[in-house]
């Protein structure tokens, strides 16, 4: 029976605990059978095995709606690779063939804090990297400018493209990455990111696309947390006064003007800004403003002209 969930019992009504337990066992099996690739790159040697496992062998877990066990397993993952495998299983089960849930970086030369959960054809990744497409990819650009997912066939997306960006999309289509959607991901203190999903030959039920949206956002967040933990030095918080001064600097005020607004001396403002720069370990006031924005110490809405 594959009646798209019609009349089937939602997972949460057939024993959620049991459901999660079974899913955990499945997941443990994957982890035991999986040998991490040398070099730690997360590029998909096991992806095909996962795909055949879910489509032909038939998943043991009958899923009829959003799988809340997914969140729990992501939270417990100790390696990004675990999250990547689980994520790929879920989206392949929905009918997607390729997926890239990743920071907007060169996937083959990713900085350590970048999330790279990519299951794309290797040849395409090499081409993408060699051509430095990460800088021009129209999908990345659109994802940075909006919060909601977009379909690659959406006339609004296509009409905003420049010629060299059309070339990128056409080349991608030629290697089987032609039909799908991109889910922008905006997380605090993270590199710009998105999840692109390629629709497979049997299609994807449009009513299940929102499941993929949820999986992507959650998988990215879990991976980001995992990667950020060892990298981030303990954050030095700005004092209230430093925060106020940086915010006024960001609004274009001089030290003197900021002093007048706050009722303190120009000199005190100057020192507060210096202290903020020292805490962030940056050399200029501009960089201090950018760091404060990125950390969420000050809010873009309060300082944007």
């Amino acid at each position: 029976m594959e009646l798209s969930g019609a009349g089937a019992i939602p997972a949460h009504q057939c024993g959620a605990a049991d459901f999660r337990l079974r899913h955990m066992r499945e997941f443990e099996n994957i982890r035991e059978n999986y040998v991490s690739p040398a070099g730690g790159a997360c590029l998909a040697p096991a992806a095909d095995a996962i795909k055949t496992g879910t489509t032909e062998g038939g998943s043991q877990v009958k899923r009829t709606g959003l799988d809340w066990g997914f969140a729990e397993i992501c939270d417990r993952a100790v390696e990004v690779e675990d999250i990547r495998q689980l994520f790929m299983r879920e989206v392949c089960a929905l009918g997607f063939t390729y997926a890239a849930c990743a920071s907007h970086v060169d996937p083959l030369r990713a900085p350590p804090q970048a999330v790279v959960m990519v299951d794309y054809p290797q040849a395409w990744l090499e081409h993408f990297s060699a051509q430095h497409y990460a800088r021009r990819d129209p999908v990345f650009r659109a994802a940075r400018r909006q919060a909601l997912p977009f379909q690659w066939r959406d006339p609004r997306f296509l009409s905003a493209l420049e010629d060299d960006q059309r070339v990128i999309l056409n080349e991608a289509a030629e290697v089987g990455l032609g039909e799908g959607l991109t889910i922008p991901i905006h997380a605090p203190d993270a590199l710009p990111a998105s999840c692109s999903l390629v629709i497979g030959p049997d299609g994807v039920d449009p009513l299940r696309v929102r499941d993929a949206h949820w999986y992507a956002v959650y998988a990215h967040e879990s991976a980001r947390r995992l990667l950020a933990a060892p990298l981030t030095a303990p954050q030095r918080r700005l004092a209230r006064r430093e925060e106020q001064c940086i915010e006024l600097i960001a609004r274009g005020k001089s030290d003197f003007e900021a002093g007048v607004i706050l009722g303190i001396s120009e000199h005190t403002v100057h020192n507060a800004v210096r202290r903020a720069m020292a805490k962030f370990g940056v050399a200029t006031r501009m960089q201090a403003v950018m760091r404060a924005l990125r950390n969420g110490d000050i809010d873009l809405g309060d300082v944007a002209p």
């Binding site: 798209s4 379909q151 066939r153 959406d154 609004r156 299609g203 039920d205």
Partner: peptide, 25 residues
């Protein structure tokens, strides 16, 4: 219908895309 929609995922997806383009855009 519910009975045969698994054969029409592509057409359904396209229909929802067109509905966005027509009714919203």
């Amino acid at each position: 219908t519910a009975e045969n929609r698994h054969q029409f995922h592509h057409a359904l997806m396209e229909m929802h895309r067109q509905r966005k383009a027509v009714f919203i855009d």
